[in-house]
Structure formats: structure tokens, C-alpha cells
Design a protein around this nucleic acid. Structure first.
Lengths: 300, 300
DNA sequence: GCAGATTGTAGCCGAAACGGCACCAAGAGG
DNA sequence: CCTCTTGGTGCCGTTTCGGCTACAATCTGC
């Protein structure tokens, strides 16, 4: 959309917090960029940027305007999709940020199912922790988030929440597998491979430790669930994951999933959400609906 | 907003259903206007207008695009108001369409109360029948409607509904005033001044007539409630109005208001509404809230 | 069926907007 | 102190835009 050029300019400046930096990314000269911004400031009769020696900073008015810009850009995209839609094509791009737990199996499968019906729809998936996911949502870089233990933010509108329990991942043949149900206390003697402290699952474990005073032997710790699974299968460690991240069919041979006793850990919510006060692009809205049914059948 | 110029162009063309007509209203030449439109069509790769000999007609894609345009223009206005807002000024313009029944007393008083708190807020009020009011809302020419017996339209989002009964307006000293409550059948012998058939109040009366087979002597009929009141005060006729249009303090001397028996006429709704899927400008949203409380205290 | 009016459209030209380049001024950091 | 980075300005060529004029197609009234 031609008429949105200036808006893109300011959007990029806001992201880079620098006129020269934005100019480089936009393939224009800083002077030209700066002039357009000054035009807008003159028209609105309000300073949008606080010019500092090391770059620029958005003023309060700038914040308001940048939010407006991102709405506009999003709306333009949505309109385009509507046009494509009534031309018979279902296309567009779904941008989503998700927790690592769903990155291995659940989300890719849902994308596959969705694309079977709408093959022209593209996807951009950012795997990130809760905070970064919410930040991406707030800056309009993604349309949807699917995260575990989302922080309570006013601008997040939950579309669906699914309670999730923690399950244990054990190597095949592990002695603990003889018991039908596992308690966390049973694991004290065994080497554990835990997810990083920023993840929701780890925080649940930490809360339990704080409550019970249990001492666990943490043999390994990683930000990669992929690696943790490897530690289980190849080093005989025990790891933990939320249910959706450890659906039995997706587990490699050599790893067995066991539920943890309900007394040990409360469930926490996996939440599918979008930005409040925002109209999603067609493709995004449809995929959100698709995901919602996918999540629902998961529970049933 | 400079970057929205093209959009205004097409918006006006859509309203005029003519390129030349729109060009005249926009103070540009038809050729220039047409070029911009063709630019947009080329960029979207979709014909927006069906060129005919007597003017132009929006295509389906055109409809989608024009709706997008009006959203954009509305959003731009809202953003401006937000900027003014954080500059300390509460300004903006509230655009509202209303039924005649509230034009005489209720709405002006509410506007007065509102402007006492926000003196910089301007008003544009269009008095119109239901259909036209809804049309104005749908084409983004007004932000709010306050109409009696609004038609059920999907795009209308009711914010508040207030049931309204019909009351009779009689000249002071009229013989019927001796009775505490009036029945419609009592009026058969007297000359009546009825509102036009397009108004909601008249339709209620017509429905009663159809049900009861009553014969009323219609001495006068008008589209102006102002005139009807004159006929009551100066010609001794009886007229009818919904409650909110006949609040006793607003009645001129010489006119007395009497409730009609509940058995005769059901209540119908006065509805305050906005367009679904639209974010109102700040001033509009605030006035809607103000009106809602005004309507609530009315009932209590 | 034919003149007249009305509508959208293309060519040409001047004006305005825009971007690139070179240069300047102001802080930050050593 | 100098140097490096940042935003800001003057000048000039390019692109975009709008007004004028003329033209083809269609509707209207007789």
C-alpha cells in the first residue's frame, strides 16, 4: 500500500530507536526519512520523537501514533486478504509466537492440518518464552500467541485456555516405571534434566520445591526441550514436560511418558491469545479458530 | 492526514456514485481523481468500480475497500483525539443520528450536560427516521444512533435499550382529562393529530388499530412533532408521543400529558447503538456512556 | 434516429513532493 | 583534546500529482 509508506518509516524508527538505523533497513537516506517524520510532526503539531545524541526516543504522543500506525498496517493487510478471499483464493500469512512445548509436535501438526484445507496460507512461527511472545504480540509482529503460563497483561485477550499438568519423561526400562503413578518425591535419587528457569514448567517445579523442601538432584539444565529429550533417551535421565509437549505418539522410541500425581503439582494454563482491540487478519482469525478446536479435542 | 487523501477520493466517489460529482466536491479535476483510482486498482490488481455511462458502481471488491477506507478515516480521527487528549484538551466531534422524539428536549439537554464538562467537544446531530439513521451509521457518517424501534440489522450493535410507552398529548381543559387514565378507544370521537406513517409511534398505533378494528378520526398528519404539538395547543387536537418525547417539564403551557392504558399498546424500545466492529472516537464513546446513564436515570 | 448533454478517459505541461548527496552541529567516549 | 556517531539542513535531479484540453461512449428528449 503506497499511502502507508510514511507510516512504515516511523514504525521502523520506533523499532530501531534510531533514524539512521531505520534508514538503512528501509534503503533510504537518513535525511529523507527524517524529513518525512518532521512533516508528520508538523501536521499533527506534536513532537513524536525526543532527539538525543545516541538516537531517538518516542514521546508519549509518539507511542500513541506508533500504536495507530501498527493498527493501520495490520488493517491494510486484513483488507488485502479480504480481497483475495472474494477472488476465491484463501491466502495470507499467519504470524504466531509459541512456547517451546508446542513447537515439537502439536503446533506443526495443527499447521499441517490447516494447510491441507488452505494450502495458500503461509506461516511465520516464532518460538519464544512468555515475555518475548507477549512483546512480539504487543508490537504487532505476531497475530497470535500460544504460550504456557502467560503473564497477566491487560492488552492480552485470551481466546482459549487449556489446563496443563506436568508429566515425567523416563527412559524405557527405568525402575520407576514399575509404579503406576509417579510422585515427584520418587525422583529424588535419580539424575534429572530440567528445563531452564524461564520456562513455565520449571517454575511449577520450583514452586513445588519451595513448598515441600524437597531436594532434587539436577544433573542437567537446558533451554532446549529437544536436548532434554536427548538426555532422557541417551543418558537415562528423567525430565519433565507439560502434557501437550509430551503426547505419546510424538515421543521417540526409548522414552516413556508417565503422569505425575495430582497432589504434587497444580495444573497451569496453556493460553491461546491475541491482542485486545485488534481485528485479526482473516487467515489469523481462521487459524485461531482451528487451533481452538484442536486444543478442545486434545482435552476430550 | 495527508496520506489518506486517496482514500478520501474513493470514499467520495462511492458516496456520489460518480467521478465527476466527487471531483467537484473535492475541488479536483475528474481526470486527476480517476487517475488516483486507477492507481489503486492497479496496485490491488482488482477493479473497484464498474464504469457505466451514467456514473460508476462499486464492485464487490470496491465495497470491501470502501469499508476499509471508512475504518481508516475513523481510526485516524480517533488517533488525533487521543493526541489532543494527552495534551490536556478533551476535544473532538460527536456525530449522532436520532429520532425526532428526542430532538426536542432529551438530546439537547444531554448535550448541554455533556458540554458543561467537555466544552471543547463539538456535535453534529442528524434527525432522521430509523432507516436513514441506520444508513448514516453504516456509511460512517455518524458514530451513534439513538432511535425508536430500530430495525434489526446485523451491523447495528445496541449499547442500551429503553422500553418506551406511548402517551397522549391533550390541550389543557380537554374533557378527557377528567379521567385518570386514558384508553385509545376514548379518543375515537375527537380530532387526532398523528405522526407520519414512517415513525415508530405511528406504527404502534396502526398495529393497535389493525388488532382492534377501531376507527380513529385523523384530523391531521405530519412528519414534524413540533407541528403536532402546535395542533394540540392551538387547535385542540389530541396527539401522541413516546414518553421520552413528552417529558412534562418540556411541554409548553397548554399541553397536558396523559399515560395510555397498558392494555392498549405494548412498549417498544428506544435504542442507543453503534456500528459493530468499529472503535468509536474518544468523544463519541464518552458521550455514549453519558447518554446511557442519562437514559438509565430516566427510567428510574 | 438524430442532436445535445453527460460521463469516464488519455495527452500534455507546470507545480509540488520526494529522495540523494554533501555538509554542519551537538554530544559521547576515550 | 580528538574522534566517532547521531540528528539536521541546503541544494538539486527525479518522480509524482493535478489542471487543462480534447475525445469516445452512452443516455435523454424530441
Amino acid at each position: 500500500m503506497r499511502h502507508l509508506r510514511f507510516l512504515r518509516y516511523l514504525d521502523e524508527v520506533a523499532r530501531c530507536r534510531s533514524i539512521r538505523g531505520a534508514a538503512q533497513r528501509l534503503n533510504v537516506t537518513p535525511s529523507a526519512l527524517n524529513r518525512r517524520i518532521m512533516d508528520i510532526e508538523a501536521e499533527l503539531d506534536a513532537k513524536l520523537l525526543e532527539r538525543r545524541a545516541r538516537g531517538v526516543q518516542l514521546t508519549a504522543a509518539g507511542e500513541v501514533f506508533v500504536r495507530y500506525i501498527r493498527e493501520q498496517l495490520s488493517d491494510a493487510e486484513r483488507m488485502r486478504e479480504q480481497l483475495e478471499d472474494l477472488r476465491g483464493l484463501k491466502r495470507g500469512t499467519v504470524k504466531i509466537a509459541c512456547s517451546q512445548a508446542v513447537a515439537h509436535d502439536f503446533l506443526p501438526r495443527q499447521i499441517g492440518l490447516f494447510r491441507a484445507r488452505y494450502p495458500l496460507v503461509g506461516f511465520e512461527v516464532a518460538v519464544a518464552d512468555h515475555e518475548r511472545a507477549i512483546a512480539l504480540l504487543a508490537s504487532y509482529e505476531v497475530d497470535l500467541v500460544l504460550v504456557f503460563r502467560a503473564p497477566f497483561i491487560g492488552r492480552l485477550r485470551p481466546l482459549m485456555t487449556v489446563p496443563q499438568r506436568l508429566v515425567a519423561l523416563l527412559p524405557a526400562g527405568h525402575p520407576l516405571l514399575e509404579r503406576p503413578k509417579l510422585r515427584l518425591a520418587d525422583c529424588t535419587g535419580f539424575p534429572l534434566a530440567l528445563p531452564e528457569r524461564t520456562t513455565g514448567g520449571r517454575q511449577m517445579i520450583e514452586e513445588f520445591i519451595a513448598r515441600s523442601g524437597l531436594r532434587l538432584s539436577v544433573a542437567a539444565e537446558s533451554n532446549s526441550f529437544e536436548l532434554l529429550r536427548g538426555l532422557v533417551a541417551q543418558c537415562g535421565m528423567i525430565s519433565f514436560q507439560i502434557q501437550i509437549g509430551a503426547l505419546p505418539p510424538a515421543m521417540p522410541a526409548g522414552i516413556v511418558v508417565r503422569a505425575l500425581d495430582e497432589r504434587d503439582l497444580n495444573a497451569a494454563d496453556l493460553v491461546l491469545g491475541q491482542l485486545r482491540d485488534r481485528n485479526l487478519p482473516l487467515a489469523g482469525a481462521q487459524f485461531a479458530e482451528h487451533l481452538a478446536t484442536g486444543l478442545k479435542t486434545l482435552g476430550g
